[in-house]
């Protein structure tokens, strides 16, 4: 498999704090890599390291098989775009001027590309407006328009859904899918896991600077446990019945929801609960979602 990004024991230490701790990351070319982690887990630091904004304390990385210490890396980076934390725009300049400015340092001479980029992000007609008068969502879109100017092969987006309304999120999602179909690889860090779930082809789960797991979406769904979800007011009674039938892999949720993970058939479950005098209000088969999977992975209780 060809990789857009490979890191080998990538480490960044600030004073005594290990912000990134021996991360071995593999982003396949053509993938949409969902980068999931809690606040301060090291997602942004890794993006900053990959973009040359910060230097690794230890370890190495390569972009499209070019080592970060090679002189070739600057040529490779010329076709990589990124939004780190927030789009870097000059607020006193208009949208057109910001794009023209970016075209200049990218060495892009085709003026049509500015109109095309604005059109792609749904900002046509706002070219003459100063960026300081843009809403947060519009700035985010303009930031993405800037990313498209150099015809990138890899785009790194740090929390790109921030500040976008539901329509904006849907449009951005469609744009990412569209660009990915054209061969652009994406690394997207996001807290909105439900959105990542709709587009990611691969995942990297990070916590406290360490990459806990890398997995393809296909394998993730395989790993997401099937469960039978039942709803009954008296959860203690259900627990008692489950223990009686030697079923110990279950979880209690609020409002009388119980999930049973053992490979048990819903009808069998209904039958023995009925025999124990428990009349179930609702029962359905379900899968663990990405958020639950992540919380289980990091030990639960943390906000993703």
């Amino acid at each position: 498999m060809n990789y857009a990004v490979v890191t080998d024991k990538l480490t960044k230490i600030y004073s005594k704090h290990r912000a990134v701790d021996e991360v071995n990351m593999h982003i396949p070319q053509g993938s949409i890599y969902g980068f999931v982690g809690e606040n301060g887990s090291g997602k942004t630091t890794i993006i900053r390291l990959l973009m040359g904004l910060a230097s690794p304390s230890k370890g190495r990385y390569s972009l499209f098989d070019v080592d970060f210490k090679s002189n070739e890396i600057y040529k490779i980076r010329h076709n990589i775009s990124a939004i780190v934390e927030a789009p870097s725009l000059v607020p006193t300049m208009t949208a057109d001027e910001n794009l023209k400015y970016a075209c200049m340092y990218y060495g892009v001479k085709d003026k049509q590309i500015i109109k095309d980029a604005l059109h792609k992000v749904g900002l046509e007609g706002t070219g003459k407006k100063k960026v300081k008068d843009f809403s947060l969502g519009m700035r985010q879109r303009l930031g993405i328009a800037v990313l498209l100017l150099n015809k990138p092969t890899l785009i790194l987006l740090d929390e790109p859904m921030n500040g976008l309304d539901p329509t904006g999120i849907a449009e951005l999602r469609d744009l990412i899918i569209d660009l990915n179909k054209q061969g652009i690889t994406f690394l997207i860090s996001s807290h909105i896991l439900s959105e990542l779930e709709k587009i990611a082809t691969h995942y990297g789960f990070i916590s406290h600077g360490r990459l806990i797991k890398e997995i393809s979406t296909e394998d993730l769904y395989g790993e997401c446990q099937k469960s039978v979800e039942i709803v009954y007011e008296d959860t203690a009674k259900v627990e008692e019945s489950l223990k009686k039938h030697k079923i110990d892999n279950y979880k209690l949720y609020p409002n009388g929801v119980i999930r049973v993970f053992n490979d048990v058939k819903p009808l069998d479950l209904l039958e023995f609960l009925h025999k124990d005098g428990i009349e179930i209000e609702q029962i359905r088969t379900t899968h663990t979602n990405i958020e639950e999977y992540y919380l289980d992975l990091i030990g639960g209780g943390q906000n993703a």
Partner: peptide
């Protein structure tokens, strides 16, 4: 200072220019 505030130093480095 504006180069830091607006992130334009950052943009140029991301675009592949040496520091």
């Amino acid at each position: 200072i504006g180069e830091y505030t607006f992130g334009t130093f950052r943009n140029k480095i991301i675009a592949g220019y040496r520091k």
